[in-house]
Design a protein around this nucleic acid. Structure first.
Lengths: 161, 161
DNA sequence: GCACCTATCTATAATTC
DNA sequence: TGAATTATAGATAGGTG
C-alpha cells in the first residue's frame, strides 16, 4: 500500500522498521475496532513493542480489562475445540436466546445490540458508576447464573485458571 | 475499501454482516502476521465469532499455544503498568459508551430482560459452565458495582478479574 | 450459502517539509 | 525527528454464477 511492494521479511533498516511498526500498529488497532463494531463480535489485540525498546508496554485493544477478560477466557479453555456438543440445558438456553434475538431484530436492532455491548464493556471495564437500571441488569444476570448453578449439569468442564 | 464507503456501525443485514466478518477477519490475521514479521515483534489476535453462532471457536493468531503465552504474559503484568498507555483507547471506549448510555436510558423493562438474556448468552457462548468459584467472582463483582453506586465517581480504573 | 471478480476505498512506503 | 503529502499496493463491498 505504498510506493513500492514490500517484501514480507524483517525490515533491517532501524528507522524504516520503527516507522512501519508505528503506522501498521495504528492501522491494526483501527481494523480490530472496526471488525468489532461492524460485526458485533468480541476481539482483542495485543502488540508488543520491539524487544530492545525500553518501554515494553504493549499496544492493546480494547481496554486492558476487556483484553484480559478475553485472554483469560481463551486460556481457560484448553480443550476449546470440542465445544460442539452441548447439553440439553444449553441447547434450551440457546433456543430461547435465538427467539429473543428475533424479537430484538424486529424492534430496534441497532440500539439494542449496542446496549448489550455497552453493558458488557462497562461491567468488565468497571470504569464508571452504574445506575439503578444497570444494577437491575446485573441482578438479572446473577439470577440467571444462580439458576444455572442449581441445575444438574452433565457436562462439567474444568477451568484451568 | 470496496464499491462503497461503509458506515462504522453494526451491520444489520445478517448475510452481509457474516460475509464482512469472514473477509475482515482473514485480512486482520494477515495484517497481524505481517506486522510481526516485518517488525520482529510479538503480537496476538483473538477474534470470537458472532455470539449466536453455535461454534464458539475463536480465530486465533498465531497458534493457540503462542497466543496463550502472549496473553499470559500480558495478564502477568503489574496492573498500573498495563493501564498507562491506554488513554486513547479508553477515551474512545468512553465516548462510545457515553453515547450508548443515552440509548440505554430509554429502554423499557421488557427490553432490559432481553439484554440480560443476551449478556448471559455471551457468557454461555464461550462454552463455560459456571461453578461455585465463578459465582463467587460474580458476587464480588456485584458488591463492587454496589459500592460504586454509593460512591462519588473516583475515575479510577480497576481490574475486576 | 460459496467462490470469484473488480471498482473503489484504505492503508501505507516513500518522500517532502 | 517528526508531522504532512502523495502515489500505489492492498483490502474489500457489492455483484455474478
Amino acid at each position: 500500500m505504498g510506493r513500492k511492494k514490500v517484501k514480507l521479511a524483517w525490515i533491517t533498516n532501524d528507522a524504516t522498521r520503527r516507522t512501519t511498526f508505528e503506522k501498521r500498529k495504528k492501522g491494526l488497532v483501527k481494523k480490530v475496532s472496526e471488525l468489532a463494531t461492524l460485526c458485533g463480535v468480541e476481539a482483542c489485540l495485543v502488540v508488543y513493542g520491539p524487544q530492545d525498546a525500553v518501554e515494553a508496554e504493549p499496544e492493546v485493544w480494547p481496554s486492558p480489562a476487556e483484553t484480559a477478560r478475553v485472554a483469560t477466557r481463551f486460556n481457560s479453555m484448553p480443550e476449546m475445540y470440542r465445544w460442539r456438543k452441548m447439553t440439553d440445558q444449553e441447547d434450551f438456553l440457546r433456543q430461547r436466546v435465538a427467539k429473543l434475538q428475533d424479537q430484538l431484530r424486529r424492534q430496534d436492532r441497532e440500539s439494542r445490540e449496542l446496549e448489550v455491548s455497552l453493558f458488557a464493556h462497562e461491567i468488565m471495564a468497571g470504569g464508571r458508576i452504574l445506575d439503578d437500571a444497570d444494577l437491575n441488569d446485573a441482578m438479572g444476570l446473577m439470577q440467571m447464573i444462580d439458576l444455572k448453578l442449581k441445575q444438574p449439569n452433565p457436562l462439567k468442564i474444568q477451568n484451568m485458571s
